[in-house]
């Protein structure tokens, strides 16, 4: 009796496992299919795409669409390709991510280890920033950027992204530092370390996982942003996402699908690389932050 129970248990287990794997494979394929389509069609000549079979492998392999998308496609008035806008995006994303992460870390440090009256209220208000829809701030933000004289520049976009990211970066760091032993801060105070030395020497070296989480989060959000880019940038400061849109939706001449695909992959590449390089830290960091806080 007992033996037979065990037997059935094992058999159902196997069946369940097969089912689970089938489901997982199905979803993996489901999610990977668009990427596959993009990659395959970005290395085909346009004629092959016109035949209509998007899933077929290329008969004739070419990297010409990639070169065109990068350096010679008609994006705006001039045929510059996406390259200058890619550079624009990098020049916006790197400072925006860096500044918002540093400020978020400092906020988290102050909110947990240098508690003052009303700290929780301020944290609550900062948290609200995570819930405000982008569209609401467009007009006031345009006003502020105009007043500051940085409308239509990369600096303007950096400011917008820093301000918008602060809510999230503060949330991440505050919850991470809430679990950080306060006795260490006290010990460092007795050791004569000041505000910044404690931050730099005691907290920051232990913040690896949460820094990774924040950087990935901010990088993805800022890189993928379209609304702020299209609203606040002019031709010289346009980020990659907006340029890609202009490339794809241009209504003159032949629609070069293979170039569009290549451009889309180029636009997605940096976030993809960031995830592949540091994805496991991302999960680990999220867990670390989730345990307490």
């Amino acid at each position: 009796m007992a033996v037979s129970t065990v037997d059935t248990a094992v058999r159902t287990g196997r069946l369940m496992r097969a089912l689970i794997y089938a489901l997982l494979i199905f979803f993996a394929v489901y999610y990977l299919l668009p990427l596959f389509v993009m990659l395959v069609n970005s290395v085909k000549p346009l004629d092959e795409i016109r035949e209509g079979n998007m899933l077929a492998l290329p008969r004739e392999f070419t990297i010409q669409p990639w070169l065109t998308a990068w350096s010679s496609a008609q994006v705006g008035v001039q045929a510059t390709g996406l390259a200058p806008y890619f550079i624009n995006s990098i020049l916006i994303v790197v400072p925006a991510v860096f500044i918002s992460t540093v400020l978020g870390a400092l906020n988290g440090y102050v909110l947990t280890k240098w508690q003052f009256r009303g700290a929780n209220l301020i944290f609550g208000l900062m948290l609200m920033a995570c819930f405000i829809p982008f569209q609401i701030v467009l007009i006031p933000m345009a006003q502020i950027l105009g007043d500051l004289g940085i409308a239509g520049t990369r600096y303007g976009l950096i400011l917008v992204h820093v301000v918008y990211g602060l809510g999230f970066t503060t949330l991440f760091f505050r919850n991470y530092y809430a679990a950080f032993p306060t006795e260490l801060v006290k010990a460092a105070q007795i050791d004569g370390a000041g505000f910044f030395r404690i931050f730099r020497r005691i907290l920051l070296p232990s913040s690896g996982p949460i820094v990774v989480v924040t950087v990935i989060w901010q990088f993805t959000n800022v890189w993928n942003d379209f609304l702020f880019g299209v609203s606040f940038a002019d031709f010289s400061s346009m980020p990659m996402t907006v340029a890609l849109n202009n490339l794809v939706s241009s209504s003159t001449g032949v629609r070069e699908y293979n170039v569009h695909f290549a451009g889309a992959v180029l636009a997605a590449l940096p976030t993809l690389v960031v995830y592949i390089v540091s994805g496991r830290y991302f999960v680990r960091g999220l867990m670390a932050g989730a345990v307490k806080g």
């Binding site: 006290k186 460092a188 105070q189 050791d191």
Partner: peptide, 16 residues
Amino acid sequence: PSKRDIAMVFQSYALY
């Protein structure tokens, strides 16, 4: 604390 000329050993040791 750093100016009081004291040193403290914490319950959790508080080693960095």
